[in-house]
Simulated scan of single mutants.
Amino acid sequence: MKTVVLLSTRRLPPTYFDTVREDLGNQELSLDVIAWMPPSGYVADRVHTFTLIGPGRMPKAPAPEPVVEADPTEEAPDAVIAPEAVAEPESVVGEGEVAPAAAEVPADAAEDEAASTTPAGAAASSRGAGEARPVGITRFRKALGWRYRKARKAAGKVLPKAIKTSAPVKFLRGNRASKDLGKTYWGRIEGRRDVLSTIEKADVVIALDAGAIWAGWNLGRRRGSVPVVLGLPAARRELDQLKATTKAAAGNG
């Protein structure tokens, strides 16, 4: 059985690992995942190990469905109700007994309620008795932050939408985000001995997305004995080559 390590910085669905096995030729594989984000569902039944090195929590196993057993003493749905079990019209409780008459609201309470609905009363209640308007450096920081947000919003309006949504701008933003995430992801891998031990035991390491490329490049440079590839097609070629090499060695032996 071949061991394959998957490097990913995206949220993967459980069905994705079935696709991985199909794309790799439905071979007997042990899948170990080193992920930045938790999967979107329970995956313990689809992979050997799933190591989360980023934010979030692993999803819990789904609770088994309760088995509902029929109660032999339970009344059938179409059972006929006895006439004597129905309440007579005289037994219905009157309106006066259900809810007592509303008490009159005192005049001073009505004045307090009216004062709280005025703008001054609402402002005082929202700010609270112990709070005061910011002064000094706090007021300066709030004013500076407000002007910054206003200027940024105005700059966004001035820039044409065609430029903001253009392919080059999207590529630059995505490339920068991928580089930042890739460096952080590699830093987590490099600092985890258990992760490095899992990678050393692998036959093939696959970087699945752009955020995992930097980690794959560093692993390939430091551990030349373990092939590190980008994408599933390249991993399929590596596995087929390993399989052919194993058969040839077995035939010669």
Results as ranks from 00 to 15, higher is better:
Glu104Trp: 01
Glu84Lys: 08
Val98Ser: 06
Gly130Met: 12
Gly187His: 05
Glu28Phe: 07
Asp23Glu: 14
Thr19Met: 08
Val98Asp: 09
Asn26Lys: 13
Ala101Phe: 04
Thr245Leu: 10
Ile199Asp: 05
Lys2Gln: 13
Lys157Ser: 09
Glu95Trp: 13
Ala44Lys: 07
Ser125Pro: 00
Gly191His: 12
Leu181Tyr: 00
Gly130His: 14
Ala99Met: 12
Asn252Leu: 14
Pro38Met: 00
Val228Lys: 02
Ala212Trp: 02
Phe50Glu: 01
Glu97Cys: 03
Val226His: 04
Asn252Arg: 15
Arg236Ser: 04
Ala44Gln: 09
Ala110Arg: 11
Arg152Asn: 14
Ala207Leu: 00
Ala99Glu: 12
Val5Met: 04
Ala102Pro: 08
Val20Arg: 05
Ala248His: 07
Val98Phe: 10
Pro14Ile: 05
Lys153Met: 06
Ile213Leu: 08
Asp78Arg: 06
Arg11Gly: 10
Pro233Asp: 02
Leu181Thr: 15
Arg223Asn: 10
Ala109Ser: 06
Arg46Asp: 02
Pro134Ile: 00
Leu31Met: 04
Thr9Ile: 05
Val195Glu: 00
Leu144Phe: 11
Ala177His: 13
Val135Asp: 09
Glu74Met: 11
Ala129Thr: 09
Ser178Leu: 05
Gln27His: 06
Ala107His: 04
Glu90Phe: 10
Val105Asp: 05
Asp112Ile: 09
Asp18Gln: 09
Leu242Asn: 01
Asp180Arg: 11
Glu28Arg: 10
Val67Phe: 07
Leu159Cys: 08
Phe171Gly: 07
Ile206Lys: 02
Val226Leu: 01
Gly224Ala: 12
Asp112Tyr: 09
Leu172Asn: 09
Ala124Trp: 03
Arg193Ala: 12
Pro13Phe: 01
Arg236Asn: 05
Leu196Ala: 03
Ala82Met: 03
Ala167Tyr: 11
Leu52Lys: 06
Val80Cys: 00
Leu24Lys: 03
Asn26His: 09
Ala120Lys: 11
Arg147Pro: 03
Pro55Gln: 12
Ala101Thr: 10
Ala132His: 07
Thr117Gln: 13
Gly224Pro: 08
Arg127Asp: 09
Glu74Cys: 04
Lys183Ser: 11
Leu29Ala: 01
Ala207Asn: 04
Gly121Thr: 04
Pro100Ser: 02
Ala82Asp: 15
Arg11Trp: 01
Ile189Gln: 00
Pro106Asn: 03
Ala250Glu: 15
Tyr16Met: 02
Ala87Glu: 08
Ile163Arg: 12
Val47Thr: 01
Asp209Val: 08
Phe17Gln: 02
Ser116Val: 05
Val105Glu: 13
Val93Ala: 13
Thr49Arg: 15
Glu69Gly: 07
Gln27Ala: 08
Asp23Phe: 08
Val92Thr: 13
Ala110His: 02
Pro227Arg: 01
Lys142Ile: 13
Glu113Asp: 09
Leu31Phe: 04
Gly56His: 01
Pro168Glu: 03
Lys157Ala: 10
Arg176Leu: 14
Trp146Val: 10
Ser166Thr: 08
Arg188Ile: 05
Leu144Cys: 06
